[in-house]
Design a binder for these strands. Sequence first.
DNA 1: CCACAAGCCACGAAAACGCGTCACACGGTG
DNA 2: CACCGTGTGACGCGTTTTCGTGGCTTGTGG
Lengths: 213, 213
Amino acid sequence: MSAPLPLPAVWIVEDHSLLRSTLAEIITESGTGLATTFASCEAALASDGPAPDAIVLDIGLSGMSGIAGIRLFKERFPATEIVMFTVFDDREKIFEALCAGASGYLLKSESPDRIAAAVREVIEGGSPMTPEIARLVVARFSQLQPAGSEVHLSEREEEVLRCLVDGLAKKEIADRLDLSIHTVDNYVRRIYRKLHVNTLGGAVAKALREGLV
Amino acid sequence: MSAPLPLPAVWIVEDHSLLRSTLAEIITESGTGLATTFASCEAALASDGPAPDAIVLDIGLSGMSGIAGIRLFKERFPATEIVMFTVFDDREKIFEALCAGASGYLLKSESPDRIAAAVREVIEGGSPMTPEIARLVVARFSQLQPAGSEVHLSEREEEVLRCLVDGLAKKEIADRLDLSIHTVDNYVRRIYRKLHVNTLGGAVAKALREGLV
DNA sequence: CCACAAGCCACGAAAACGCGTCACACGGTG
DNA sequence: CACCGTGTGACGCGTTTTCGTGGCTTGTGG
């Protein structure tokens, strides 16, 4: 952890040439790592060098989108950390990037110091984000359970519901839980009533959305 | 935003008395806010004063758990920001707290400076976390969509799938899409095949989990 | 032009499901 | 004690779903 490691290899993928060289300078001069620059995802992926430790990636690239790029980079270099560095601050872009495998998300308004620090942070296993983005991310969690859903399922009912979500038929559920099919049927009906639905689909959807399983 | 605001009111809920007073000191002396301390959630909730701007909350309290406390605080003071401050760094505790409505999560190993900064950050709309916790949080996202599911549904199939997720019966779907119920049935079966499931529940679960809708 | 695949629509029989209703045991609570 | 919630099991009936099988259009390529 604290040995005199070789300088991390950092790729910069950014289509604005000025910004690209500025970024490289920041990374190099701050002693954060050895920067290699590319003007596009395609160019970076065409490189046959060894895997970098981190990639600083613009999301609004011409040609391949940054989001698509993330997946390709992650596929080819699973251990490489990716930090998004873009002007986009809308939710969908952020979540798409994070889902695709990015570990950090910065905006272009950040200071050079912060950027170098972010690269270090992501290499050390952190997830650099602006405070606002961090808030969006955690908000996505609490929204999953809107609170006040107030659906109390008994233990058995919950168990049956889990089976339904797993795609089992009633007969299979009866088999797995060692119950009569009639009993399972009764539970399912109770679940329907409590969830205010009247189809299997509705129950499963509600269960997943409200985090009942 | 930048007006000479009155000092934010900050509650400290922590059962270790020494730590409690230390925290209060940090918050006050750094000029972050006006600290009021409580030894338990119950005590804080019994207070009839005005809503605080932020609460620093220990999760391992005797009596009511911090997690349960979050919900109660959020219910009573919806606009109050909550920062967890605990020794627990296991995933479940973290996600429970975030789902319950906490906006930040720090460990007790953090420096006093960082704690005061975190309180300021959470009041300004951020989500202070340690880098490791931030990583856990974003990791939870990429795991949601394992990528490369590669399921191509035709437009009609997708439409039908959406209806299923909405809890409609085939008959209702046929009605809504102006199709014969037999046709709907065929689409449903095709969806089953493409999704490798054989029940409505499985299809809905897969659709939601893979974000096909 | 014809074949062939893909998407779209339909029938009918067997199986599963949705629902009302009922019964009994068991552990708490008023 | 009586009552209620929970867990378990059951019957019957009408509806829905499942599934094998078929036909019909469109578009693409040989």
